[in-house]
Simulated assay, not measured.
Amino acid sequence: MSADDGEIRTLIERWAEAVHRGDMAGVLADHSDDIVMFDVPPPYEGARGIDAYRETWPPFFEWQSKGARFEIVSLDITAGEDIAFAHALLRCGIEKELADNPDNRLRLTVGLRKEEGRWLVAHEHHSFPDSSV
């Protein structure tokens, strides 16, 4: 594992822990001001910019406070000199949902860029498989 891979792994693991704690400052840390996030719930055109990104989290934190999990199961990273991406699978749900469908995973893709020697998340994409088909 390269130093960049390790830095990115730590950044994403810290972010996931902050999400699970409902720690907004931790969730926003290491994200670019011009982040674009495509998420499971609306807005359909995605959240564009750090302020819009911030606004997406309170409803998730409220849902999660009812006992939901948010745990990284696997995380793979590909890093170049100043651009990187990572993809992960997470257990995300309340205990009943996880018990009813133990193989369901939240899919996460993260795009990063290095600015002034520091990795920043510039893009996030969250999705669940469509189990209705």
Rank of each mutant, 00 (worst) to 15 (best):
A84K: 12
E115P: 00
F61N: 05
A122G: 11
D39H: 06
S131D: 13
D100K: 04
H31D: 06
P41L: 13
P43I: 00
P43C: 02
H87K: 04
P41T: 10
H123Q: 15
E55G: 09
P59N: 00
G93W: 02
M24C: 03
Q64V: 05
D34I: 03
E17D: 15
Q64W: 09
R14K: 14
L108M: 14
V110M: 07
S74D: 15
I35C: 04
G49K: 09
A29M: 02
T109F: 04
R69V: 06
S32H: 06
H126E: 11
P43D: 01
D82L: 11
L108A: 09
R21G: 07
P129E: 13
H31Y: 06
T109Y: 01
G111D: 01
P58C: 04
I94S: 03
S32E: 03
D5C: 15
A84S: 13
S2P: 04
Y53A: 03
L89K: 15
D34K: 06
F60H: 10
E97W: 12
Y53N: 07
W57D: 11
E71H: 10
H125D: 12
E124V: 05
G80T: 10
L112K: 04
R107C: 11
E115K: 09
D82A: 14
R107I: 08
R21D: 10
M24H: 00
L89E: 14
H87R: 13
H125L: 08
I12H: 05
L89N: 10
V19C: 02
P43F: 04
E115F: 05
S2Y: 03
A16F: 01
D100F: 01
V40I: 15
L11K: 04
W57S: 09
E62H: 09
R21M: 07
A25Q: 10
H123M: 11
H31T: 12
P102H: 11
A3I: 10
R9D: 14
W119E: 08
R113I: 07
D33L: 14
G6T: 06
G67F: 07
W63D: 12
A16G: 11
R118H: 14
A29S: 14
F128Q: 02
V36G: 00
D82Y: 12
R91V: 12
S2D: 11
M1A: 13
L75P: 06
R113W: 03
G111A: 09
E55H: 11
E45R: 03
E81H: 15
A79N: 13
R54M: 07
Y44H: 02
R118C: 01
L120S: 02
E45I: 02
E124D: 14
V110Y: 08
I72R: 04
R91L: 10
T109A: 05
L11R: 09
W119R: 05
N101M: 10
K114M: 00
V73F: 01
D33P: 06
R91G: 03
A86T: 05
N101D: 15
D51Y: 00
D82M: 08
Y44R: 06
S2Q: 05
H87C: 03
L90W: 01
G49T: 10
H123D: 02
D39M: 02
H20C: 00
L106A: 06
R48P: 01
S127W: 05
S2I: 03
D5M: 11
D5Y: 06
D4W: 00
S132D: 09
G80S: 12
E115C: 01
P102I: 12
E97Y: 10
H31G: 01
H123G: 08
V36S: 00
I94L: 03
A99R: 14
